[in-house]
Nucleic acid binder design. Structure first.
Lengths: 316, 316
DNA sequence: TTGTAGGCGTTATCAT
DNA sequence: ATGATAACGCCTACAA
């Protein structure tokens, strides 16, 4: 009844057995199978919080991709807590998952996590591993920032601010780096006073850092936020300061979360293909499972800027 | 090493064994345990689509609640396809889940699903089972509609329309029924021409049914939509028809999805405690697992209307 | 109070 | 090409 060994049995017998099994309603017991083989046909997917709208599409993509190969996916939340993350990894290992996808972005306590994952096929999602010990699937953050800068540049903006994501986050780091690089590339020397670093990817932090920008005294006509929540925070603080968007200040987000096309004004943002990120991670992980010695790969998925109503010509 | 039988062993020995096990890094193998006990300490959660923002909080609540008792949760998507739902149930049963929560709202093909779940502790979430064969945890839809009607009534609205959800859906049915009932209760005879039934819970259907309402020729100054997506569709069609919200037509949604407080105008809607729904479902399911003979219970969680900017005084 | 043997449903190995 | 058997790691009944 094992397709892989069916060739060494009489085809007629095989057919007969299969038919009888079916008529009996026989279904293999995954626990018994797993106990014997030490494999579970199950893959883990670790996210900070399933409640964050970024992750459901990734999870769905992952599940759809791996279920095609007969694998199941189980998800767990870490709340960005390194201790919880370790627990979850241990719990999943004890359940004999065959591989693990990590969409948790915490750069600190890296060593502990890496050690916990040792020997298990693994892939990072939505983040890259600088040391390249582990495969990764991420969006092309630099290209996204480049497109954002190009759009604003084309609209006449020269003094562009950046609200960076938390620097303990892979995306926060990458997008801030890309911002400095792409500004220079566009012939706009980045002003360090116009880079504010958020402590969390939240609306509140977006507002707080916009306030900081405003307070710095340095002039700007546009903000590139490291993600959509930060951008929504910009909206709040700009309104509070009596500034209109986009007439006074243009705002660009990152991720293209659900419904940011319906906030006011509709948010111009970099669309990230979250579903595809998850699906690609699933495929990568499966090839890793099939061939554990294969060396890590690093995939960058293309992103595209979606121009909506939060960007307009520079005021000056 | 089993806490439940620890009392019939010498405390000193127990401590000794536990210590040694710990020092050896011993972790029980769930598969071996499950093979022997025919239990998995795992519960299933079936949703139409994890990508729908209603479900992540429910899932999270469920997970948090059951993990407190040492249970794991696994989720699967059905895409509202009865066939897929059966597959998923069978797959989960083969994996020996100890109980199943169903947040899938399809009323058709009920018998097949019920049969597939036979003998397995189960609970319906966000829907009620009229036959009461299965426990359920849902929001108090009738109270939500009552609050919506009361608010509009207080604002002077008398001709109130309803965009009902799909009638193959538990919530669509319940809210439409509640609408008729509560209108009468408020002394406002419901006009059947002012009840449009959406085929899906989508923005597009919300727009289409608003168009139907407008085309019916019957006058109205407010719309109660059966969920937030339908309400957003109202926005679109009203704008297209040159009608302002709330000046010309007030709109009330249902669910209080993430970010509907930031669309324009901010949506007045009935807040449903999705996290609590999931958590309560988890607790209900666990008690069902502990005591399989217990008869089904039906829990209704209270909802509260959140008044925002999409409702205002009646124009007339 | 402690020790031991048997079996849960598979798969893999070995003998036929 | 087919059939028999041991072992995976745990729990439980029973013996000591």
């Amino acid at each position: 009844m094992n397709p892989e060994t069916e060739h060494l049995v009489n085809p007629a017998t095989a057919r007969r057995i299969l038919k009888v099994a079916q008529s009996l309603g026989y279904v293999a017991n995954p626990m018994a199978r797993g106990l014997k083989t030490n494999r579970s046909l199950t893959l883990g997917f670790l996210v900070p919080d399933i409640t964050n709208p970024l992750f459901p599409p990734m999870i769905r993509g992952f599940e759809d991709a791996v279920s095609e190969q007969g694998y199941n996916a189980i998800t767990a939340n870490t709340d960005n807590d390194p201790e919880r993350q370790l627990q979850q990894i241990r719990s999943m290992r004890s359940r004999r998952i065959d591989g693990l996808a990590l969409a948790t972005a915490v750069l600190e306590h890296e060593e502990a996590a890496k050690e916990a994952v040792l020997g298990l096929p693994a892939v990072h999602v939505n983040r890259i591993d600088p040391t390249m010990d582990i495969s990764s699937v991420a969006s092309d953050d630099q290209s996204g920032i480049r497109q954002a800068v190009a759009l604003l540049r084309g609209l006449g903006h020269r003094r562009i601010a950046h609200i960076a994501g938390p620097q303990w986050t892979s995306t926060g780091l990458a997008r801030a780096r890309a911002f400095r690089h792409e500004m220079r590339d566009a012939g706009l020397e980045p002003d360090e006073r116009l880079i504010a670093v958020a402590g969390q990817y939240t609306i509140e932090q977006g507002a707080a850092q916009t306030a900081a920008l405003l307070a710095s005294g340095a002039e700007f006509t546009a903000i590139i936020a490291a993600n959509d929540l930060l951008a929504l925070g910009c909206y709040d603080m700009l309104a509070e300061a009596g500034l209109r968007c986009p007439e006074d200040v243009s705002v660009v987000g990152f991720n293209d979360m659900p419904f940011v096309d319906r906030v006011w004004p509709a948010l111009t943002t970099v669309h990230v293909p979250h579903y595809e990120l998850g699906a690609e991670a699933g495929r990568t992980l499966l090839s890793q499972v099939a061939e554990p010695t294969r060396r890590p790969t690093s995939i960058l998925l293309p992103v595209t800027l979606v121009e909506r109503a939060s960007t307009g010509p520079a005021r000056d």
